[in-house]
Design a protein around this nucleic acid. Sequence first.
DNA 1: TCCGCAAGAGCAAACGTTTGCGCAAACGTC
DNA 2: GACGTTTGCGCAAACGTTTGCTCTTGCGGA
Lengths: 342, 342
Amino acid sequence: MSQVSIVDIARLAQVSPSTVSRALQGHPRISAERRAAILALAEELGYRPSQVARSLVTGRSHTLGVVVSDVTDPFVAEVLKGAEMAARDAGYRLLFAMSNRNPAQEIEAAEALLDYEVDGLIVISSRAPDRYARLSRLRDAGKEHRIPVVLLNHAQVDEFIYSVKMDSESGARMAVSYLSQLGHRRIAFISGPRGGRSSSERLAGYRRAVLEHGLDASPELVIGGAGLLEDGWETLAVLLALKPPPTAVLCYNDLSAIGLLAAAAQTGVHVPDALSVVGYDNIPLSAYTTPPLTTVEQPKEAMGRTAVKVCLRALAGEPATTTVLSGQLVVRSSAAAPARAQ
Amino acid sequence: MSQVSIVDIARLAQVSPSTVSRALQGHPRISAERRAAILALAEELGYRPSQVARSLVTGRSHTLGVVVSDVTDPFVAEVLKGAEMAARDAGYRLLFAMSNRNPAQEIEAAEALLDYEVDGLIVISSRAPDRYARLSRLRDAGKEHRIPVVLLNHAQVDEFIYSVKMDSESGARMAVSYLSQLGHRRIAFISGPRGGRSSSERLAGYRRAVLEHGLDASPELVIGGAGLLEDGWETLAVLLALKPPPTAVLCYNDLSAIGLLAAAAQTGVHVPDALSVVGYDNIPLSAYTTPPLTTVEQPKEAMGRTAVKVCLRALAGEPATTTVLSGQLVVRSSAAAPARAQ
DNA sequence: TCCGCAAGAGCAAACGTTTGCGCAAACGTC
DNA sequence: GACGTTTGCGCAAACGTTTGCTCTTGCGGA
């Protein structure tokens, strides 16, 4: 083996491996000179401890598993970025897996990560949140050894399955209220992935605002989608087919809003004059569309950071709980007063 | 410990741990009945082998390290996606790290991943490609134990540092040739990150095409950038300040092209009539800009997949080598004949 | 002088696997 | 019936750490 191990150092320093180990971790019962000598030797040999050997004995891998629906989604990527940074800062690594928006694959991925003895699990955009509670390796573990799971934008499932989320309902509500103030009465909503928690919350926020402002509540105004570019693109036609067509639309996320914008530009439907559109997420790109997208900001990086913090806190035994962050409306120019207002 | 181990199974099956281990891996010298019994027992107990114990003894972690500059870049995310899929298909996991486009952090991350005994390393958008050859843990390992590194869009560095890339030079050349055919004579180039291999290759392709078609080769036409949205946005002004302004521009990537598009829309510069713009990468979003972006496709997912394949092939001892994939121009509507052509 | 105690360091077990080797029984061959 | 071969399985070492316990030495106090 080319890798230098703790016993190589021990041999050269004429001490036992345990002494080396203790010196390296700053154990108090090692004399200062020895420690110095050992440290110098380790440095010189370029020693780096084997994390896997360490994991095996300590039961801690200093690794968090993260399973995402699709890295290609800017929202997800941004959250992942935040998580990576927080993990790195805490001396943790991230074991990465993708579910391709597929519940079965998601669970399979999670289990695979558990095989690697991850200390915790972070799930970005879960499609099967309730199944975590039933994973035997989680369920059967004693309270002390339970692996914390943190779900993004989902409700807390049980004592060890935490949640960090944004208040999607109020976000959507803010957006609709804003549109209402601009004078819109007939506002559509393009929903997100079926069964997704954030989609249903945003829908709830939309409905609530519609009620509060006495807007048109026709069911035809909420249109199915999955949070993809294509959705927005395809939805324009169905929007236009409505009698009368809505004057504004709230999209599940920026991606679908951008798709919609593209379709509108293509079709000659002017935004915001003929149709106001507002997105959700405030992905970096949303500032660079034509017109720039009015959207509701989600603190994406912060959510990622918070997720690992909650996870680590749970590991430390501190009772962590669901965290909800707040967002805000960022007003750009894709929404304006309706042309035929008044 | 709540986790069931191989010795638990051994005890219940009244055999030795080694027999269980062998039964599980289908060793031929285990009788069929025993194997069946053991398998059944394992299934029943929900046994899952500890990957870390396995790694410790075999020296193989079935994990690949991947360090990326920034997941938030759609190109990177797409490549990562491809890599994840290929890794999963091969029974490998991905240990993930970000460099934030910072060479020092990149190397630090790589070393951290090596501490976890990754079997290979994949680097997407390296800023310090030559430093891998000097990592002692790589350099000092015997030929047999050397950890393969594969660099994306960089040249091969040494025998164990592979490369999978797209032919950036010909990609850029194609784009410029296309613009030339449309009638443009004065074509600008917004470059990518300094010192980046793909940026210099694309620049080379640009220069070559400019020469081949006898276009305006003024040095002022190549403008610095870093491949970010902001770059494109800021560059419009400098483009316009040129005398005379170029009629077309090739951007380092789609992101900067999108930034440019946004600035143009904002400023009232019509694309493509007043300015043709072509991007690079063909990220999903490029089909949804206004106008839709003409760009050169990079096979992003395929590059990710190929990277892990090359890595795995190297691990298997087969002499892998640099792979270069080809791209092609995808024509949409952000480029057209110049208004004042002829 | 003897005892107790603290400081410093080593021994060995443990973590959960894999695997080379050995051993016994069964089997086939002449 | 003796002998070589195959089949089936167990023993024990090994992977590189960490850590509870033990051991030795030296020192201070009685």
